[in-house]
C-alpha cells in the first residue's frame, strides 16, 4: 500500500470553495497565544489542516503541541487570535447540535443515573421524549452497557464510564465528533477495545471525527489521516494518509504497514526534536 504524504499547506488552495461544503472541519493559519501570569505563551502557530465529511482525522503530538487547544477552539469553547476555523461550514461556536465533544475524563454527573447522564444533552436541546429515552437506552446497549441504565456513574469502572460518555455524545446524533484523548486515562487493553468499537461506530454511521491523542499507534489505527504536530509552539509538521483497510480490527495493529507508519511519524517528531538540539523522552 503506497502512503501518500502531503504537506499541510499544499491542500488549502484551488478547490477551496467547492471543498467548503465537503469539509467537516477546516483550520486555516490558526494562531493562538495564551496570556498567562508569566507572560504570553504561544500554543499554536499558523497551523492548517482539514477534516473532510465522513473522515477520521487524528491530531497527534507530544504534550504542549496545542492539539487540545485546537480541539477546544473547534468546539467554540475558547477564542483564538488569528486564522479561520470552520466547523460544518460555519464559524466555530459552542451550542451546536451537529457537533459533539468528548473529553479525557468521562465528565458524568454523579447525581444522575447513567441513563439520565446520556439524556443530559437532550434536555438542554429541549428534545426530551420517550423516543429520546428509548434511543439513549439502545445506545447504552450498543456501547456495551446493557442493564446499567439506573446505575450511578461511580458504580462503573473507568472504561464503562467512558462508554457512557460515548453514548451521551452519540445520543443527539452530531455529524462531527471532537474527541480529546477520550481513552487515554484507561488501561491499554480497555483502550484498544474501545478504539475498535469507536472505529466500528465511525464506519457504521459515517461521522466525521477529529481525534486528539498523544499515542501515535492509536492515531494510525483509528484515522484516515494523521496530522502530526510538534510542540513549543504547536505547529503542523506533516499530514500522513494511513490508507489502512476498513473495517479496522485489532489485527490492523499487527500489520507491517501500521508499524511502518508509526515509525515514520515517530521519526519525523524525533528528527524535529534533534534538530532543535533537544532529546525527547
Amino acid at each position: 500500500m503506497p502512503t501518500k504524504v502531503t504537506n499541510s499547506s499544499g491542500q488549502s488552495s484551488g478547490t477551496e470553495a467547492a471543498a467548503a461544503g465537503a469539509l467537516a472541519v477546516s483550520v486555516k493559519d490558526l494562531s493562538k497565544t495564551y496570556n498567562t501570569r508569566r507572560g504570553p505563551v504561544e500554543a499554536v502557530r499558523r497551523s492548517s489542516f482539514d477534516v473532510r465529511r465522513g473522515e477520521f482525522v487524528a491530531l497527534v503530538g507530544p504534550s504542549g503541541c496545542g492539539k487540545s487547544t485546537i480541539l477546544k477552539i473547534a468546539a467554540g469553547l475558547i477564542p483564538f487570535n488569528e486564522g479561520t476555523v470552520m466547523v460544518g461550514g460555519e464559524d466555530a461556536r459552542s451550542g451546536r447540535r451537529d457537533v459533539g465533544i468528548m473529553f479525557q475524563a468521562p465528565v458524568l454527573l454523579p447525581w444522575r443515573t447513567v441513563l439520565d447522564n446520556v439524556l443530559l444533552p437532550m434536555e438542554i436541546f429541549g428534545l426530551t421524549s420517550s423516543e429520546a429515552k428509548d434511543r439513549a437506552h439502545e445506545l447504552l446497549n450498543t456501547v456495551g452497557l446493557r442493564g446499567f441504565d439506573d446505575k450511578y456513574p461511580w458504580e462503573l469502572s473507568g472504561g464503562m464510564q467512558q462508554r457512557a460518555s460515548l453514548a451521551r455524545v452519540l445520543v443527539y446524533e452530531p455529524g462531527i465528533l471532537l474527541m480529546d484523548e477520550p481513552f487515554s486515562a484507561l488501561d491499554e487493553f480497555t483502550r484498544e477495545h474501545l478504539n475498535v468499537e469507536l472505529a466500528k461506530i465511525h464506519e457504521t454511521y459515517g461521522r466525521s471525527v477529529l481525534y486528539v491523542t498523544h499515542n501515535i499507534q492509536e492515531a494510525v489505527f483509528l484515522a484516515d489521516r494523521v496530522v502530526v504536530m510538534k510542540p513549543h509552539p504547536g505547529e503542523v509538521l506533516d499530514v500522513v494518509d494511513t490508507n489502512l483497510p476498513r473495517p479496522r480490527s485489532l489485527d490492523v495493529l499487527l500489520e507491517e504497514e501500521t508499524t511502518r507508519l508509526v515509525t515514520g511519524i515517530r521519526r519525523k517528531l524525533y528528527t524535529h526534536e534533534l534538530k532543535r538540539g533537544r532529546h525527547g523522552d
Partner: peptide, 21 residues
C-alpha cells in the same frame, strides 16, 4: 469541574441551565 462546565457550554446551555443542572 472545568470539563463539565465546558460540556454544558458545548451543548449551548443557558446560564440558568448551567446553574440548575
Amino acid at each position: 469541574d472545568r470539563d463539565a462546565r465546558d460540556l454544558m457550554r458545548s451543548f449551548g446551555a443557558s446560564k440558568w441551565e448551567e446553574y440548575r443542572k
